[in-house]
Design a protein around this nucleic acid. Structure first.
Lengths: 227, 227
DNA sequence: CGCTGCGTTGAGCTTCTTCAACGATCGTGG
DNA sequence: CCACGATCGTTGAAGAAGCTCAACGCAGCG
């Protein structure tokens, strides 16, 4: 069974025996989503959570006048929408497929049973939620304590790290999505890109980025200097 | 033992037997903090977590140039700083006593053992972290999608609710702290208070607040109207 | 009585958003 | 194969929101 193979690669299920994995596999629904297709909406009844198998999913909030803030982007192996499984019953945000996606869905009731008599699964889930909390805390820090250039600098350094700390790489999402992730709008993001390029901190061409002055970027990301 | 009595009133320990509570009580350190005293600092080694017994604690981040963002204020019965217990090893923010405080401290190692063979404790902890995630998500929403008047309106409505939805109440924290919680500075907050009062949405006098136009405030909080 | 911390007010400025227009790219249908 | 529209990104000009800096009032407390 191909489902079990995928499950065995998910951190959340680390340390589970083959038999336990089989039990997990039994409650999974395998789902496909087209690019741009909603997975669920803010306020929907939360009947379970998901793990990304392939593609990416954005989780976001929208203001009444249409501005969007991406809370998180999830890729292969990452669980999301666990909140309503453990607390309350509604999804606190929207989710939408960024690419063609394959997701595993875990119904709340069945999963709670599993976790209840499976301490290492519980510990893994606690670790997962804790990591999410850390990410939120740096998102809040970013939004509240840094200006947009600093947020962008942080993001570029993060991307560079993810690619093995090399200086040349490509943006993994569209710039308009990046704007929403950084808590700003495309126009502003575009101007900041231009400004960083002008200051010779980076070179930017379409989705291609080259880091020219890593130290300068790091200063910006820490909020050290002006502009 | 007085510790057990306090523990039995904490949501996190709901559903535990007397014996289980006794085991929990055995690992607690009872600690006192003076007003303004730090509990831990960002980056410190996270050797355990805390539960507030009396007083309040703020958890916050600081930018290099000194601006402060309060992530959360914890009151009696609430656990905080659980993240390093389950993921990583360092506290991701600062914590400081807002009043004279009594805190119970739970060492990481001992607590993990307890949770490992105590499914309902694990479930309670999962619920607690999930609730924290929801709060973070509305903090992000607030910071990114609302302007300061909207954030203040939300906070006032929240306070009113907490007091049984009455229209007259007092701010529970100093205005300078409130500014930091709302992601702004005291000067701006002061101006916004004046503006809301001028528009006859509220009356404000020192820490005393009267809600004059609840509907108007709700509109602001939802981000409906201008200014 | 004066000090200190908190809150308020004013003036000027920075950052970011809004609105509008335009260019480039890409996929589709003619 | 080209033309078209749609989406995305960029740029400019103007305006709004919030921040900085500075001064001052006020209360509590040593």
């Amino acid at each position: 069974m191909d489902i079990r193979k995928h499950l065995s690669r998910v951190d959340l299920f680390n340390g589970l025996s083959l038999q336990q994995l089989a039990e997990v596999a039994r409650i999974v629904s395998d789902k496909k989503y087209k690019k741009g297709e909603p997975v669920f909406a803010d306020g929907d009844d939360g009947i379970g959570f998901y793990i990304v198998i392939s593609g990416r999913v954005k989780v976001y909030k929208v203001s009444p006048d249409g501005k969007e803030q991406i809370m998180h982007i999830f890729g292969p192996g990452q669980p999301f929408a666990e909140v309503p499984v453990f607390e309350g019953s509604r999804y606190p945000a929207n989710a939408e497929a960024l690419d063609h996606c394959r997701l595993f869905f875990f119904p709340k009731k069945d999963f709670v049973k599993l976790i209840h008599d499976n301490p290492s699964l519980a510990m893994n889930m606690l670790a997962s939620l804790s990591q999410r909390l850390k990410q939120f805390s740096s998102l809040v820090e970013s939004l509240s304590l840094k200006e947009v250039p600093g947020r962008l600098a942080s993001y570029l350094l993060y991307l560079s790290d993810k690619n093995g700390s090399i200086d040349t790489f490509e943006l993994d999402i569209a710039k308009s999505q990046l704007a929403s992730l950084l808590g700003t709008i495309p126009e502003t993001l575009s101007r900041i890109f231009t400004k960083l390029a002008h200051k010779e901190l980076i070179r930017i061409q379409g989705p291609k980025v080259v880091i020219l002055d890593r130290t300068g970027l790091e200063d910006l990301a820490e909020g050290e200097s002006k502009l």
